[in-house]
């Protein structure tokens, strides 16, 4: 990888207030400009915790997290957004511009144009005036991506972006993420889908501690996947494999 370093994480640990065990520990990886990194792990494995560390919502419990002079944009899961709030898709996209401003500034015409452009890129130009809560899950996910685009951050964090998408939506998003990487942005994307992880440039396997970090072909060994999911792989016919995961509950939101 040749791009500039956007994020350097060195032996990072973090715990939630009052919790005895750290939510994540011994994380060491980096994100460079132009690469797509998949964060693979089970529910409760620490993916959301990692994102909250990077966005600054959660204090570092140890180690070094270097995000110098780099803004990051976060695309949350749409299940977590308020559907009863009276905002249109354009309003939501425009919030990306607001995040770059001091509190007394208001977004202007140029910002509005940026937001429209972002909605066009995610293929939602036609519904910019629709109320956010009335959109489908996939559309809402793409509106949140558009919001991140308007933030114009070199580093993009996406929390399970494909979970709410249908096939065409997923393909469109996949294409968009490749484009964004080609523009020189770094992309960090949480997933528990192995195929998504294999399609990324590098993959970070996480189950409370870092299991592996590297290019998918090298990193995603059978042993790594088993340790990541804490389950056993069942070999199916024709070389395909299925994972029987143990269930995890109580992921901290």
């Amino acid at each position: 990888m040749t791009g500039a370093r956007l994020l350097v994480v060195d032996d990072v640990a973090a715990a939630y207030p009052g919790a005895a065990v750290p939510a994540i520990a011994s994380l060491t990886f980096e994100v460079r400009a132009g690469e797509r990194i998949a964060v693979l792990g089970p529910n409760g494995g620490g993916k959301s915790t990692l994102f909250r560390l990077i966005t600054g919502e959660l204090a570092l419990g140890g180690g070094r997290l270097d995000l110098t002079a780099v803004r990051c944009a976060f695309v949350p899961q749409t299940e977590r957004s308020r559907l009863d709030f009276p905002v249109t898709a354009l309003d939501v996209a425009l919030m990306g511009a607001v995040s770059r401003m001091p509190w007394w500034r208001r977004p202007g015409r140029a910002d509005r144009e940026l937001a429209r452009e972002a909605l066009r890129r995610v293929g939602l130009a036609a519904v910019e005036d629709a109320v956010f809560g009335s959109l489908s899950g996939g559309q809402r996910q793409r509106v949140l991506v558009a919001r991140a685009l308007v933030q114009d951050a070199p580093l993009l964090l996406l929390d399970e972006p494909f979970s709410a998408l249908d096939v065409t939506g997923a393909e469109r998003l996949e294409l968009l993420l490749r484009e964004l990487a080609a523009e020189g942005r770094g992309i960090l994307m949480a997933t528990h889908d192995l195929d998504q992880a294999r399609a990324a440039d590098r993959v970070l396997c996480l189950n409370r501690v870092q299991i592996a970090f590297g290019e998918p072909a090298a990193a995603l060994t059978r042993e790594v996947i088993e340790r990541t999911y804490g389950g056993a792989i069942v070999d199916l016919a024709a070389g395909a494999a299925a994972l029987l995961p143990t269930h995890h509950h109580g992921e901290r939101r």
């Binding site: 600054g56 976060f74 949350p76 308020r82 709030f85 905002v87 309003d91 425009l94 919030m95 509190w103």
Partner: peptide
């Protein structure tokens, strides 16, 4: 009037407002 964008952002997406700088 001045706080409108901030109020909108925080009201809509409280969980991620910090990530959006509010």
């Amino acid at each position: 009037f001045l706080l409108h964008p901030t109020l909108l952002l925080t009201g809509f997406d409280r969980l991620n407002a910090t990530a959006l700088g509010r």
